[in-house]
Computed example of a mutant assay.
Amino acid sequence: MNSDPRRVRLTAAGGPDVLRVEPMSVPEPGPGQLLVAAEAAGVAFNDISTREGLNPGPRPDVLGFDVVGHVEKVGAGVEDVVVGQRVGALVGVGGYATHVVVAAGRAAPLPEGRPAEELDALVLNYLTAWQMFHRVVEPAPGQAVLVLGAAGGVGSALCQIARAAGVEVYGTSSPARRARVEANGATWVADAAVVPVKVAATFDPVGGPSLARSRRATSRSGVVVSYGFSFATGAGYSRVGAMARTVGALVRAKLTPGARVAVHTVERVVDKDPAGFRADVTALVEQLEAGVLRPEVTVLPLDRAAEAHRRLQNREVQGKLVLVP
């Protein structure tokens, strides 16, 4: 295993080949920050849309939304984290590296003894699912929900969390992934149009034109939780075109009768309530250790980040995809 400090730099907007592995200098944490030696870094669809230039804002040098590792240094003013502690962190960008600077408020303590890649699945995928299910929707036992992309990282997490709460789950995926959806306790459906009941909530990572279909599958008093716009990845949209379709779908949902749409952004929730973020991660760890949650993780070396992007974008990965230095 290569132990030299290095990162995967995003050299331009484009396909996976724009990701280049290069040496790096180990950064110093500033006030309120931590330096984390990474054990694992997650790969998410948000990374793909950023790489393609679809997300708003400046292009980052390094992708990577979530990391797990040990704290090497703490910056001034950090009092609740110590050197050597294992943490999971939402960095937003910068995770594809051996050493990552993290805002202390976005780091949560994690236990020793469990594989870093398994814990990394909790930090973004399961955390996102937990927040949407327990903080946004809060369905009652016996109600039904619909999970789009139920074989993916967040979709799998939603199925497991919902079933643990006594909620009936319908999940969509390709036919090839049907067994994975059913293994997580969901009833497989080909798409939102064939769900046999009106559900209390639909969890939609596709966005854009998918929101109208999700609303039709959801009861008028229910909610569609929108947490991505994967419809645009690999589809040839410009940034302006992708955002126009996204905003247009949200406006139409606002102006037409039916289920309301709630847009969920995990970073916003964490920044608003860091203590709640840590409590959520603690709850997830407890359910993991109890065997309630069963993350499925695919692991690739950090130096194969471009391959990871190809596999995720081609829907060749079930569950969470993680890079390890």
Rank of each mutant, 00 (worst) to 15 (best):
G95P: 01
P175L: 12
A41I: 02
T11I: 00
G207H: 09
G15N: 11
A140Y: 07
P5C: 11
L127I: 03
R216Q: 13
E307P: 01
A275N: 07
L321D: 09
P5T: 10
H70S: 12
V224W: 05
P111Y: 04
P274Y: 08
T233A: 14
V297E: 07
G30Q: 08
E112Q: 13
V167I: 14
L158Q: 03
G155S: 04
D120K: 00
D120F: 01
A157F: 04
G222Q: 11
L284Y: 04
L255R: 15
A41K: 06
G69E: 03
V169N: 07
V102A: 06
K73L: 15
P27Y: 12
G53E: 09
H99A: 08
A290P: 09
A38C: 14
V123T: 11
P27Q: 11
A157S: 04
F229P: 01
V71E: 11
G105F: 06
E307T: 13
R51H: 06
P175W: 13
A129M: 06
G69D: 06
E138R: 15
A164W: 01
L35Y: 12
E168T: 14
L323S: 05
E307G: 03
T218K: 09
V251T: 14
T98Y: 00
P16E: 13
V263T: 15
H264A: 15
T128E: 08
V240E: 14
G241K: 04
Y96C: 01
R294Q: 12
N125V: 00
S3N: 10
R245I: 01
S230N: 14
A164S: 15
T172D: 10
V78Y: 10
A140M: 11
M132D: 05
V147G: 08
A89T: 05
V71W: 09
V261D: 13
A121N: 03
F45D: 10
G57Y: 08
G15M: 02
Q160G: 01
N125D: 15
R114H: 14
S173K: 00
V240N: 07
V224I: 07
R260H: 11
M243Q: 15
R260N: 11
N2D: 15
K198Q: 15
L127D: 09
P274Q: 07
S210V: 00
G241E: 13
D47W: 06
V154A: 04
T202L: 03
L10V: 10
S221E: 15
C159S: 03
R106H: 14
M1E: 09
Y96T: 00
V297L: 08
V8I: 15
A37L: 07
W188H: 12
L250V: 03
A97L: 08
V299C: 03
S3R: 12
P295F: 04
L288E: 04
V91C: 08
L288F: 04
V71Q: 10
G94P: 02
G155C: 03
L312I: 01
L293Y: 07
L34G: 08
A76G: 12
L302G: 14
A232M: 05
A40M: 02
R177Y: 09
A140R: 14
T98W: 02
E296Y: 10
A41F: 08
V83K: 02
T50P: 02
G57M: 04
D4V: 09
C159N: 12
P274D: 10
R311G: 07
Y227W: 06
A183C: 00
A44E: 14
L34S: 05
R20E: 14
S174A: 15
L312F: 03
L90E: 10
P29L: 03
D271F: 01
E267F: 13
S210L: 03
R310H: 13
T98I: 00
